[in-house]
Amino acid sequence: MSIEVRIPTILRPQTKGEKLVTGEGETIGELFTDLDSRYTGLRARVVTDEGALHRFVNVYINDEDVRFIGGLEAKLADGDSVTILPAVAGGM
Protein backbone atom coordinates (compact mmCIF):
# COMPACT_ATOMS: atom_id res chain seq x y z
CA MET A 1 0.00 0.00 0.00
CA SER A 2 1.54 3.23 -1.15
CA ILE A 3 0.56 6.67 0.08
CA GLU A 4 1.74 9.92 -1.50
CA VAL A 5 2.65 12.61 1.01
CA ARG A 6 3.01 16.31 0.18
CA ILE A 7 5.69 17.92 2.31
CA PRO A 8 5.52 21.64 3.14
CA THR A 9 8.61 23.81 2.54
CA ILE A 10 9.49 24.01 6.24
CA LEU A 11 9.78 20.21 6.51
CA ARG A 12 11.75 19.66 3.30
CA PRO A 13 15.09 19.73 5.16
CA GLN A 14 13.83 16.49 6.75
CA THR A 15 13.05 14.92 3.34
CA LYS A 16 16.31 15.87 1.61
CA GLY A 17 14.46 18.61 -0.25
CA GLU A 18 11.72 16.35 -1.65
CA LYS A 19 8.28 17.95 -1.85
CA LEU A 20 6.52 14.65 -2.56
CA VAL A 21 7.43 11.39 -0.81
CA THR A 22 5.73 8.02 -0.47
CA GLY A 23 5.13 5.96 2.61
CA GLU A 24 3.11 3.09 3.97
CA GLY A 25 0.76 2.46 6.86
CA GLU A 26 -2.76 1.51 7.81
CA THR A 27 -3.17 4.73 9.76
CA ILE A 28 -1.70 8.24 9.76
CA GLY A 29 0.29 7.31 12.89
CA GLU A 30 1.83 4.29 11.14
CA LEU A 31 2.55 6.36 8.06
CA PHE A 32 4.59 8.87 10.09
CA THR A 33 6.52 6.06 11.78
CA ASP A 34 7.29 4.58 8.35
CA LEU A 35 8.35 7.97 6.94
CA ASP A 36 10.57 8.62 9.95
CA SER A 37 12.56 5.45 9.18
CA ARG A 38 13.75 7.11 5.96
CA TYR A 39 13.33 10.79 6.83
CA THR A 40 14.69 11.07 10.32
CA GLY A 41 13.11 13.78 12.42
CA LEU A 42 10.04 14.23 10.26
CA ARG A 43 7.70 12.54 12.74
CA ALA A 44 8.83 14.71 15.65
CA ARG A 45 7.87 17.85 13.72
CA VAL A 46 4.31 16.62 13.35
CA VAL A 47 3.68 14.38 16.36
CA THR A 48 4.26 15.39 19.98
CA ASP A 49 6.19 13.33 22.57
CA GLU A 50 2.78 12.45 24.02
CA GLY A 51 1.75 10.94 20.70
CA ALA A 52 -0.73 13.53 19.46
CA LEU A 53 -0.65 15.83 16.46
CA HIS A 54 1.06 19.16 17.12
CA ARG A 55 -1.49 21.92 17.61
CA PHE A 56 -0.27 24.03 14.69
CA VAL A 57 0.13 21.42 12.00
CA ASN A 58 -2.65 20.35 9.66
CA VAL A 59 -2.63 16.85 8.21
CA TYR A 60 -5.12 15.89 5.54
CA ILE A 61 -6.13 12.58 3.97
CA ASN A 62 -7.20 13.67 0.53
CA ASP A 63 -9.28 16.77 1.45
CA GLU A 64 -10.16 15.79 5.03
CA ASP A 65 -8.43 17.29 8.03
CA VAL A 66 -7.50 14.20 10.07
CA ARG A 67 -8.45 16.01 13.31
CA PHE A 68 -12.07 15.31 12.39
CA ILE A 69 -11.57 11.66 11.41
CA GLY A 70 -9.57 10.18 14.27
CA GLY A 71 -6.26 12.07 14.29
CA LEU A 72 -3.29 9.70 14.19
CA GLU A 73 -5.73 6.78 14.17
CA ALA A 74 -7.33 7.95 10.93
CA LYS A 75 -7.41 5.07 8.44
CA LEU A 76 -5.58 5.13 5.13
CA ALA A 77 -6.51 3.36 1.91
CA ASP A 78 -4.27 2.54 -1.03
CA GLY A 79 -3.93 5.52 -3.31
CA ASP A 80 -4.80 8.11 -0.66
CA SER A 81 -2.93 11.37 -0.81
CA VAL A 82 -1.72 12.91 2.45
CA THR A 83 -0.86 16.59 2.79
CA ILE A 84 1.01 18.19 5.70
CA LEU A 85 0.56 21.95 6.09
CA PRO A 86 1.51 24.55 8.66
CA ALA A 87 -1.66 25.75 10.38
CA VAL A 88 -0.94 29.40 9.66
CA ALA A 89 -1.96 31.12 12.88
CA GLY A 90 -1.01 33.63 15.51
CA GLY A 91 -2.38 36.03 18.00
CA MET A 92 -1.92 39.34 19.69
Binding site: N58, D65, R67, T83, V88, G90
Partner: peptide
Protein backbone atom coordinates in the same frame (compact mmCIF):
# COMPACT_ATOMS: atom_id res chain seq x y z
CA UNK B 1 -8.58 33.73 3.85
CA UNK B 2 -11.23 33.08 6.47
CA UNK B 3 -10.03 33.57 10.04
CA UNK B 4 -11.38 30.34 11.54
CA UNK B 5 -10.78 31.77 15.02
CA UNK B 6 -13.10 34.76 14.28
CA UNK B 7 -11.34 36.60 17.04
CA UNK B 8 -10.16 40.10 17.80
CA UNK B 9 -6.90 38.71 19.19
CA UNK B 10 -6.15 35.52 17.27
CA UNK B 11 -6.15 34.23 13.71
CA UNK B 12 -5.93 30.84 12.12
CA UNK B 13 -6.43 29.92 8.47
CA UNK B 14 -9.61 27.93 7.98
CA UNK B 15 -8.33 24.39 7.54
CA UNK B 16 -10.48 23.32 4.57
CA UNK B 17 -10.06 26.58 2.72
CA UNK B 18 -6.29 26.51 3.27
CA UNK B 19 -6.13 22.99 1.80
CA UNK B 20 -8.10 24.10 -1.26
CA UNK B 21 -5.84 27.10 -1.81
CA UNK B 22 -2.72 25.01 -1.24
CA UNK B 23 -3.92 22.51 -3.87
Amino acid sequence: MTNAARSTTFYEFDSEEWKREYD
